[in-house]
Design a protein around this nucleic acid. Structure first.
Length: 193
DNA sequence: TAAAAGATTTCCT
DNA sequence: GGAAATCTTTTAT
């Protein structure tokens, strides 16, 4: 079944939240999306903020397609394109399919560290420049939206230097595969200072 | 043509 | 907790 990619032609904030719990695979290898971040056209932290460039052209392309970029000259990061100039960064997966292949690529066995980070999950799934611009709803990719509602954690995004306070990071509550813990929101009595 | 920044991960102290 | 590794893209001169 194909979820219509038109579903993604909306604000990255909405899509980022709805992607928690979705199934994502590349050549049959992948798992459940447990952590995302939204990047908007009018967002100083977004690659698209200063307009279209050769690198970010995919962010202005078809919704439901991939925007893959090189991070710190070392890693690859995968985004799902929403409406033009906005995208959702996939930050972590719960590994489900192709565990052995992931372990081989990552060179380690701890399941918790296979896909818990944007660079890690791209290495585990074998994502690279050749996947930039491809549809996530057609082979070798597969993306299926969640069938049940999950409890969502919300917090500020990670690793950015602009708009650092915007709560545009979403995660699956209780997941052991998050790249980092979310700040505790409703525990006023635990302030150590 | 040169310089700086960057949506990270890993290893060391 | 802190810093190195590593290189592409973008911006400034």
């Amino acid at each position: 079944m194909n979820c219509e990619p038109e579903t993604f032609n909306r604000s990255a904030l909405e899509v980022a939240r709805e992607l928690i719990g979705a199934e994502l695979t590349l050549n049959g290898i992948g798992g459940i999306v447990v952590e995302t971040e939204a990047y908007d056209l009018e967002d100083p932290a977004s690659h698209s903020f200063r307009g279209e460039t050769p690198r970010n052209r995919s962010m202005f392309g078809h919704s439901g397609h991939a925007y893959v970029y090189r991070s710190y000259g070392i890693h690859w990061c995968l985004n799902v394109v929403c409406r033009p100039g906005s995208a959702v960064l996939i930050r972590a997966l719960e590994p489900v399919w192709g565990l052995a292949q992931m372990q081989e690529r990552r060179g380690q066995v701890e399941a918790r560290l296979l896909c818990s980070g944007p660079g890690r999950l791209c290495q585990a799934l074998g994502i690279g420049r050749e996947h930039d611009g491809l549809s996530l709803f057609q082979p070798p990719f597969r993306l299926a939206m969640p069938s049940t509602i999950s409890e969502i954690a919300i917090g500020p995004r990670i690793g950015i230097s602009k708009a650092v306070d915007m709560p545009w990071r979403f995660g699956l509550v209780g997941s052991a595969h998050l790249s980092r813990r979310f700040p505790s929101t409703s525990t006023p009595a635990d302030a150590p200072s």
